[in-house]
Computed example of a mutant assay.
Amino acid sequence: MSSDRRRAAVRPWEDGRFRDVVWPASFRTAPRARVPAHALAVLVLVTAVCEAFQGFYAADNPDFAQDRAGGVLLVAGLAAVPLSLMCGVLIGSLRSWRGVPYGVLAFAAWTTSVLVTPVLLLAIGVMGEPESPCGANEPEHPLSGMAVPVCGVAALAAGSVAGWVAWVVLRRRARPVALYTVWLVTVAVTVVAALALPLHAAQTCGPSGMG
């Protein structure tokens, strides 16, 4: 291996690959894939937050326990359509699909994403409303502060670290799609794990409206 190739292999930032490693959604060699890649990442983030909320919130309120599994499945079912369609758009962008079929796929993906995302977020607000008035003891919504932004930033950082580790473990031969997959899965898992504790520990009014 020549000295130039050895230097490029050790220092990816010298030829622009550093961005591909720590932010795989950039897809430096496939510009058409950047927008759907970031859109898919946003959908995954929103879905992860909603799943964490449905799965861990109101642990002290038995009224929510019976509907917990249903809420998790509902979020998964609603998110499955835009996630699948946007994933298809991303694949099509990477493979340079064009024409009417790809246009229809992209239209369906963006339309369902715009329609479903507010519904998922609304589910969090509705579930956060106690069934009985709490009066002066009404607790603060666990996601009303900076919890979600902080967890989102931490998740993105964890995804970048995971991408870097995968790139090193695979001896700098990992394909952009593989790095993106590792990054996206890490982001989703980190969001759920980071929100699980504060959501589970959050106090609610309980079934009788008492704090």
Results as ranks from 00 to 15, higher is better:
13 W>K: 05
136 A>H: 14
185 V>S: 05
6 R>N: 15
25 A>F: 00
16 G>W: 03
94 L>Q: 06
130 P>N: 08
158 A>S: 11
201 A>V: 07
91 I>P: 10
113 S>T: 15
78 L>R: 05
202 A>G: 04
165 V>F: 08
27 F>E: 03
59 A>H: 07
47 T>N: 11
150 V>C: 09
102 Y>L: 14
127 M>E: 13
128 G>Q: 00
46 V>P: 00
83 L>A: 14
63 D>Q: 04
199 L>I: 03
132 S>N: 14
71 G>P: 01
129 E>L: 11
100 V>W: 14
65 A>N: 06
99 G>A: 13
108 A>W: 05
97 W>M: 15
47 T>L: 04
49 V>T: 07
194 A>K: 00
81 V>F: 07
122 L>F: 10
81 V>H: 06
70 G>L: 10
158 A>V: 02
92 G>D: 09
122 L>M: 11
172 R>W: 07
21 V>W: 00
156 L>D: 00
77 G>N: 09
44 V>D: 05
83 L>Y: 05
56 F>K: 05
104 V>R: 10
103 G>K: 05
106 A>C: 11
135 G>R: 06
41 A>R: 07
207 P>K: 09
47 T>M: 03
18 F>L: 13
173 R>M: 12
121 L>E: 05
47 T>V: 08
198 P>W: 06
93 S>H: 04
140 E>D: 15
168 V>M: 11
99 G>V: 04
203 Q>R: 13
155 A>G: 01
50 C>H: 08
155 A>Y: 00
96 S>G: 15
32 R>W: 04
201 A>G: 04
187 V>E: 09
145 G>R: 10
195 L>P: 03
108 A>Q: 03
185 V>T: 06
100 V>H: 13
147 A>S: 12
147 A>R: 09
205 C>F: 00
2 S>R: 12
171 R>M: 11
8 A>L: 15
58 A>N: 09
32 R>N: 04
49 V>D: 01
66 Q>D: 15
47 T>C: 08
